[in-house]
Amino acid sequence: MSASLAAPPPRWPLGSLAAAGLVGLVLLLAVFGRWLTPFDPLAQDLLSINQEPDAVHWLGTDHLGRDVLARLAAGARLTLLTGVGGALIAFGLGAGLGLVALALGDPLRSLVLGFFDLLRALPGILVAILLVAALSPGPGAVMLALGLTFAPMVAEVVRGSFARETAADYVAAARVFGLSRLAVTWRHILPNIAGTLLTMAAIILPRCIVTESVLSFLGLGGAPDIPSWGRMIADAAEFAEEAPHAVAVPVLALSLFTLSLSLVGARIRSLADPLQRAGGAR
């Protein structure tokens, strides 16, 4: 260990710290948001439409007099759940199915990789649009669509890492000791590519959340009575002139949240990677 002369840079610089705070805030909003305001996210109050933020409605009301803060909280819940669910499905398919197929080899390997090639040949949003249209709309369909849209990206990375690791001596050694292909993959290769998978998760999750919002914005999200951020944006966009705050709030929330999520992801990635860690003496 060699001591570095200059003071090491902080592990969490101010920008990343602010981003982490914002991600935490959205999580809190999603979990405890329903106790933050007395208003129901669906309750219309036609006597107080398009109100600017004040002491009663902290973030104002929309064109139907619904409380924007209550809807933001309910939307955070749905957007987060769908996004995380979609990312999990993407990893289950791309990494889970992908690794099993790679471990077992042909013909399963060609079949699975060919399937992912197929999905990749369409613009991601079109795959999602087709799938949501084909399955009856609802959060489950959106999650599956997100999963199938992003699974090829995960599979591509898994394929590259798998090829690199299989060439390593420790894999050959494990095979010589008589471990099956699946066992080698599970016990030896998976732990070695876990860091790469984590990095991928940090990239996929914000994209899932954005795509979910785009889908709901296009009217292909969950059921119409459940507010999600994309749906709030689509609803309020038509009345942007009368109540610009009702559009601005979800737009800002979505942009800042995905931006923060990406910054936190980048920070965790560089902390987890010993080669990138500043001042690391390896």
Binding site: V214, V251, T258, L259, S262, L263
Partner: peptide
């Protein structure tokens, strides 16, 4: 790079409509 990865284009689009066209 971070901007492009993290900020959805449709949000920027709506922000542009809000700012340039309405405000």
């Amino acid at each position: 790079n971070i901007w492009s990865v993290a900020v959805p284009t449709f949000c920027v689009g709506i922000a542009a409509i809000l700012v340039f066209s309405i405000w």
